[in-house]
Design a protein around this nucleic acid. Structure first.
Lengths: 328, 328
DNA sequence: CTGAAAGCGCTTACAG
DNA sequence: CTGAAAGCGCTTACAG
């Protein structure tokens, strides 16, 4: 069985309070006693019971990271930024998926307050649940989603600005008929990217044509299929702004199969700058955003809230920029 | 402040034991009392404190998933398999990274026994630490690593067999000079794949030439650089078995830049069958293994151990098979 | 500098 | 069917 603080106290011939103080580095304990206690603790392989500690202190020193996909290329970069900051602050980071919906670990850990703060990378939690859970003792940072409530802070990508820049670049290249491959209707990112696209058309006096909006779902497969369908119908777009890079990769594949050359016949811009996008042939021109920085900013914002800073901007916007490669 | 069991007891005018029994569905409580308690609990927004519960029950009902990379393409598929099984068993899955080494969340959660069992996807923990931590109350399943100790079970990919098959296919295509792009020396997977390669050469009476072993490190970049270096030296391999797909993608890129056609000038086989490998041009022939199943098997093995089954095979081997695409 | 004691929020024999 | 009480393993005023 595992050694407890009592065992250490008995072996070291001191009280359990002394053991606790010694182990937690409290000043009041004499050097000699501390040494003895630490030695005994080591010998008995003693590690404080985390649950007892948390129960008493009402702090977990853990941050939750909740998501629903086991880590697309974007999320893992964001997670890296988060984990660095969380570690630097001396907290633990536990990642929980939403698999199982209301019965998922993510729901449970949030409801049961198993963490001192959380970063939410998913839209599967409904707003109401987040509202009910967020509090001074459990602030929330939500990525890629606008939500207005006390103790909830959002970090957003400048989807609108990025989409505007992408569309502008396409128009400037001389083509007035810019197609937009759309992600899912209910995607917040997609909605904002569509808005940026439409705004850019308006800005440059290009008429909006709803036939140029191609419905897809952010997967490579959907980009591929929709592009094939277009070409099969004899429609050959000369310029496409793809709502994300994955669809753009599908578009490139379909184009190649149909002998459409890029950027000769077709100019293409994606969004996200995922790792794969510099390896496509031709390399994808895309809208990049700083994912690592997004993670860092998310974690920093969360710690500001945890530390009681009541003057936190929300939402915070992550800028984007156009990365010129070979498809435009 | 959060409602506790005491608050519910007071409001419902019963004892705290009754609240506990009612909420946990103990039979002995009358329907009427139970209803009243549940209503009060709901009204007060009561959720049992997880720490108190765990402290008392000495169970966390949580499984740890420890890894060091925020999720290469292989791991996320494995994780999906794990999460399904863990959820089905009514446990929670918490993923913790090894960022920070001995001060990482992963180390801490294992040492502090914050979980009832763990699946280890990384070789950053040293064997000795794992030995010291594994016990009847905290069994461990280790992926891709052979380790012999009580309460530790390994799940392995058939690296040897896969490498043998890859090399055999390359030799059968008519080329005797098969290069091997090697991953890091200290990689278990790499070592076994190298063994399989050497064994296949031996089996087909092809002389082993150590100059054909190209040292790289499993990254795409290393594959790319080493292939470029080879071609720059005027060496043009006709057949390459790449220790993993990522390097193979780098090799393809370098080959293309130098005008080497695949599979015309060069035949290439990878390992792992990552998602990207079917999207390369030409599509990569590779050795596939069932990642989802590996995750499922890992979790099932862990639960067998948790449930006291003392007759668990270890290691368990996941089979591989050759996926023929366009590079061979 | 050290210890006795209360208490964190639960569960669970035990008694009635 | 319900309640009083012990106890899980810690921390932390408080006293000395």
């Amino acid at each position: 069985m595992k050694a407890t603080i009592k065992d250490v106290a008995r072996e070291a011939k001191v009280s359990i309070s002394t053991v606790s103080y010694a182990i937690n580095g409290n000043e009041r304990i004499s050097e000699e006693t501390r040494k003895r206690v630490l030695e005994v603790a080591k010998r008995l392989n003693y590690v404080a019971n985390g649950n007892a500690k948390m129960l008493k202190q009402k702090k977990t020193r853990a941050i939750g990271l909740f998501f629903n996909s086991w880590f697309g290329p974007i999320y893992s970069e964001i997670a890296r930024g988060i984990e660095r900051t969380v570690h630097k602050m001396g907290y633990d980071l536990v990642a929980c998926s939403l698999y199982g919906e209301e019965h998922s670990t993510a729901y449970k850990y949030l409801r049961d307050r198993m963490v001192d703060g959380a970063i939410v990378l998913t839209n599967s939690f409904d707003d109401q649940f987040l509202h009910s859970v967020a509090s001074e003792d459990l602030p929330l940072v939500v990525l890629d989603r606008e939500i207005q409530a006390p103790h909830i802070y959002s970090i957003l990508i400048d989807n609108f600005g990025g989409a505007f820049a992408a569309t502008k670049a396409l128009i400037s290249s001389g083509c007035k008929e810019v197609y937009f491959f759309s992600g899912p209707q209910d995607s917040y990112d997609n909605q904002k990217r569509l808005d940026g696209y439409i705004a850019a058309l308006g800005y440059f006096n290009v008429e909006f044509n709803k036939d140029f909006i191609i419905p897809a779902d952010f997967t490579e497969e959907s980009g591929y299929q929709q592009m094939k369908a277009l070409l099969a119908k004899g429609i050959a777009p000369r310029a496409i702004f793809s709502g994300n890079d994955e669809m753009a990769i599908g578009i490139i594949r379909a184009a190649r199969e149909h002998g459409v050359t890029i950027p000769g016949d077709l100019r293409l811009v994606g969004f996200d700058d995922i790792r794969e996008s510099e390896m496509t042939v031709p390399a994808l021109t895309t809208i990049s955003h700083q994912k690592l920085e997004m993670g860092t900013l998310a974690a920093e914002t969360l710690f500001s809230a945890i530390n009681g800073d009541d003057n936190i901007d929300s939402p915070k916007i992550i800028p984007t920029n156009l990365i010129k490669r070979e498809t435009l």
